[in-house]
Amino acid sequence: MTVRRTVQRSARTGAAAFLAVGFGLLAGCGEQQAGAPVTSSSPTSSSSTPSGTTPTGDVPATSGGELTVVVDDGAGNQRTWTLTCSADGTAGGDHPDAQNACEAVAAAKAPWAPVPKDMACTQIYGGAQTATVTGTWGGEQVQARYARNDGCQIARWDRLAPLLQPGTEVSARSRGAS
């Protein structure tokens, strides 16, 4: 009897530990994702480094550039803006919230890099919206695609919310992870 109770207790403890680790990974996933940069021609990940980024996707924060942003609302309605950001902080173009968009891009860590292939992403759906950003940033070519089809993509979108959704702010969670 004592052996049987010990085995049952060990099994319960092992299962509880397994669940705790699993929930811990899921809880930490959002934080990890919020800091994970994403860019690719597909909405998930890319195996090659996009043109205009270092292998880690880092771009100097003081960089400026000229970008074209195309946002599709998921129903086929597209909006297109141009954005110019100078290294001295001057914003221009026809983007409705140019100053905030420039600040969000400059503050984002590796704004154009893809989600790493080995990144665990929560399978939540944030909407059918997609966006593409092309142009130059820091003297390098930019070609990035954004979507809202999983937790990693949503976090990536949210880090650049002022660029992709004029009038919105970068969330505190995304800002802390950038």
Rank of each mutant, 00 (worst) to 15 (best):
Gly35Ser: 00
Gly35His: 01
Ala36Gln: 14
Thr39Trp: 06
Ser40Lys: 07
Ser46Cys: 12
Ser46Glu: 15
Ser47Pro: 15
Ser47Asn: 15
Ser47Glu: 15
Ser48Leu: 12
Thr49Trp: 01
Pro50Ile: 04
Thr53Val: 06
Pro55Gln: 02
Pro55Tyr: 02
Thr56Met: 04
Thr56Leu: 04
Asp58Ile: 14
Asp58Val: 14
Val59Ile: 09
Ala61Val: 14
Ser63Val: 07
Ser63Lys: 08
Gly64Ser: 04
Glu66Pro: 00
Leu67His: 11
Leu67Met: 12
Thr68Cys: 02
Val70Thr: 14
Val70Leu: 12
Asp72Tyr: 10
Gln78Lys: 13
Gln78Phe: 05
Arg79Gly: 09
Thr80Arg: 12
Trp81Leu: 03
Thr82Ala: 02
Leu83Met: 05
Cys85Tyr: 04
Ser86Gln: 15
Ala87His: 03
Gly89Cys: 08
Thr90Lys: 11
Thr90Trp: 06
Ala91Gly: 06
Gly93Gln: 07
Asp94His: 03
His95Arg: 03
Ala98Met: 10
Ala98Leu: 09
Gln99Tyr: 02
Ala101Thr: 02
Ala101Trp: 00
Cys102His: 01
Ala104Ile: 02
Ala107Asp: 10
Lys109Phe: 11
Ala110Met: 05
Pro116Ala: 07
Pro116Trp: 02
Lys117Glu: 15
Lys117Asp: 15
Thr122His: 14
Ile124Phe: 07
Gly126Trp: 00
Thr132Leu: 10
Thr132Asp: 09
Thr134Glu: 06
Gly135Thr: 07
Thr136Leu: 08
Thr136Trp: 08
Gly138Thr: 06
Gly138Ser: 09
Ala144Gly: 02
Arg145Val: 02
Arg145Leu: 07
Ala147Trp: 04
Asn149Trp: 13
Asn149Thr: 11
Gly151Leu: 01
Gly151Thr: 07
Ala155Ser: 12
Arg156Tyr: 04
Asp158Ala: 11
Arg159Met: 01
Ala161His: 03
Ala161Asn: 00
Pro162Asn: 12
Leu163Val: 12
Gln165Pro: 00
Pro166Cys: 10
Gly167Ile: 00
Val170Glu: 01
Val170Met: 03
Val170Asp: 07
Ala172Met: 10
Ala172Leu: 12
Ala172Tyr: 13
Arg173Tyr: 09
